[in-house]
Amino acid sequence: MKAGSDLEKVFEAGKFAVTAEIGPPQSANPEPLLQHARMLKGMADAFNLTDNQTAVVRLSSIASAAIVMREGLEPVIQMTCRDRNRIALQSDLLGASAIGVKNVLCLTGDHQTFGNEKAAKSVFDFDSVSELYTFNKLRTEGLQSGGNVIEDEPPKLYLGCAENPFATPFEFRAMRLAKKVNAGADFVQTQAIFDMDMFETWMDEVRGRSLDKKVHIMAGVIPMKTAGAARYMKNKVPGMIVPNHIIDRMKTASDPKKEGIKLCVEQIEAFKNIKGVHGVHIMAVKWEEIVPSIVDAAGLLPRPSLK
């Protein structure tokens, strides 16, 4: 065991893992987080707390993790390289570990021009790969990027990363995952999948490089409420591919919300049968309350309780 997190235990036990995303509020009010925590407890093995997602200022992911931990949820903190240099990233990592955070997702981060602080000075001292590389050295050797060795016990971490099979150049995407695995990633959560054929192609390459044996792959899904949401993701979100048949299906559905859930559940069923996929990551953006019904309908409840 690297960190002994619930997520790690589920993977080690060979079970199909579930993570879900919780977006921290744009305020100092912990109440929305607590509400989500109470609602989602037991519905997934661990919960991602996003790090100022799309470069919008929000309650910090580490503080959010501390808050949801009070309700007994296991957090996955997301740490982007956009806002912190290596001093801050390593310091925050030590801090997170000290308060009991075990799962960390290493991300480069959305560029600040997408958010509400466009005038910010960008940092990008690391990219997600060098972040993973550094965090891995920290946990295994206690070695900081500057060469300092932590004399006390190194932090115990379970390291994750993201990968987008749908961003260009497509043929580089499996190689990029390989780099992340070599840098120290234990698990990967993919960008939301809508094009199952493309995902299968990527998985072929991933298996071709035997990466499925070295990293736990969690397929990403986003439940949609409307056809408009599907179109928006297709047209406005860089690096996202939404096939027309999905948009049509949402458009013609008598109850689009129900259809969105159904689509999600079908996808999860399919993922269970794809060799190398070890879990699902549900990103119900601003629709967190739907996670229990999806997990239930996909036959993933109750979540395993592992010692």
């Binding site: 390289c81 060098s130 993201a162 150049p169 860089p238 690096g239």
Partner: peptide, 22 residues
Amino acid sequence: CAKSMLNGPCGGSSDGHCEVNL
């Protein structure tokens, strides 16, 4: 690269264009 990345493209690379400015 808008993010000065050193290990390959981020997940926002779309049709060979940068997520910051298409």
